[in-house]
Write a protein that binds this DNA or RNA. Structure first.
Lengths: 239, 239
DNA sequence: CTTCTTAGAGTCGGTATGACTCGAAGTGCT
DNA sequence: AGCACTTCGAGTCATACCGACTCTAAGAAG
């Protein structure tokens, strides 16, 4: 029953990645989400902006191909990388059938500074995206939805921050992603109750007001990521 | 930057589906989840059980290929079908590189009766799975996790039930999927509060106790499926 | 030493949920 | 007919969580 379609022609496999970073902190301005896009140099869609990606080499895993793609574009390694969805409508690319396994990634904004600066690579603000090639606009919209949804039940915000951070910085990440103001007191309560924050004991000096505490993320245990089943062995430890 | 790997050899694309149905209702026994598998007739993995699937034809969409695969196996159309994940480790299949776009589906148990009966197709109970070919065991575990997770915040249980059903039947579906007893009173309260149930006004007669009400699912509006972003147009209607 | 700003703790009310109780409404047995 | 038995389905109570809000703490700036 399986494999009944023979070894005839099939679609070509590409891997693309939607990369997110926060805009570099420029004073008191609220940070915003930014996405790097590459200008297509060849047809189809030459001149248009598109997601970074490439054909899948026969001997490379999907995750590895996504990470490599990302490194070639930003020059840096992702802090977070997860498969998003596979897009394969027959007409999504003219001329030939292309199936794209799309990933999404988070990188730290500090590292964006050191990233590839090229006239054919540009970081766009989330709400100032240009016209995109193929179905890449839908893909980005889906990735944005996933990022926003996941931020609320997972703890991925640290992938956009440095080693230590203040509660206000962490809240700023959430506000930028969710595009919504959050109550500082309630946000603090929720984060502290999550048990994923560690107070370093240090305080950030030099602010024109009361110095805030600096936190680290608890990279150890804590509530599992919950976007994947625990391994069978780990799952048994639950009850 | 994109497409930089040329038009050389690439992986072959397959589409597979994890299909779920409830065991046929045999008296008072609690229903359980069942999954149809096909016996592999050729190498690699000949003789082993595997997920139904096939190579992706060049001119067929991913969803369509999954639905066709499912129809060829069960002889029926899925009540629910959603992409699960794309598996593409370089060594998951010997001999050649295969990337599988995997879907998961729900079908109604009544229809399983009319499904394909073949010595090479067999419905296995969720906890009595045989040794599987390739990485299909991991795939099924992931699909099970997704089904259980999604059942709790979405309303997909109706895809496993008939047109009308009692509250106890609906609860039975949840209990079978979650493998956990649920309090009847609390379950009723939660479901009624969700606003997705419509009381048909009819009651199921012939039971050896108080006759239960028959419900339908509200196929119209209600809380959006929330596993996908609303279309851009709809999203704008949010305040 | 007063004023300004943000940090961070605490209060209050509404809502969701688990555990539990109890009358309702059928069938089947005596 | 009447009693026992079963599940249906409504209701109660305690607790956890979360949004809105208040208030004090601790620094810089003037």
């Amino acid at each position: 029953m399986s494999h009944q379609h023979g070894h005839g022609a099939t679609a070509r496999l590409a891997v693309s990645t939607v990369i997110f970073a926060l805009s570099p902190d420029e004073g008191a301005a609220a940070p915003s989400l930014r996405i790097p896009l590459v200008r297509r140099l060849r047809e189809p869609g030459a001149g248009r902006w598109a997601l970074p990606g490439g054909w899948l080499p026969v001997d490379e895993g999907l995750d590895a191909a996504a990470a490599r793609t990302l490194a070639e574009t930003t020059g840096l390694a992702p802090r977070y990388l997860e498969q998003l969805y596979t897009f394969g409508a027959p007409d999504r690319s003219p001329d030939e059938r292309v199936v794209s396994v799309v990933y999404w990634a988070l990188v730290h904004s500090d590292e964006v500074q050191r990233a590839v600066a090229d006239e054919n690579v540009h970081w766009f603000d989330e709400d100032e995206l240009p016209e995109l090639a193929f179905d890449h606009r839908e893909i980005i919209d889906y990735a944005l939805w996933r990022l926003r949804t996941k931020l609320q039940y997972s703890r991925i915000a640290h992938a956009l921050l440095g080693e230590t951070f203040t509660m206000a910085e962490l809240r700023g990440v959430h506000e930028a992603v969710l595009r919504r103001r959050l109550d500082p007191a309630n946000f603090r309560r929720t984060m502290e109750a999550s048990g994923t924050l560690i107070d370093t004991g240090q305080r950030l000096a030099g602010t024109p007001h009361r110095p805030p505490a600096l936190y680290r993320f608890d990279t150890g245990a804590g509530p599992a990521a919950s976007d994947r089943p625990a391994t069978t062995a780990l799952q048994r430890t639950n009850p």
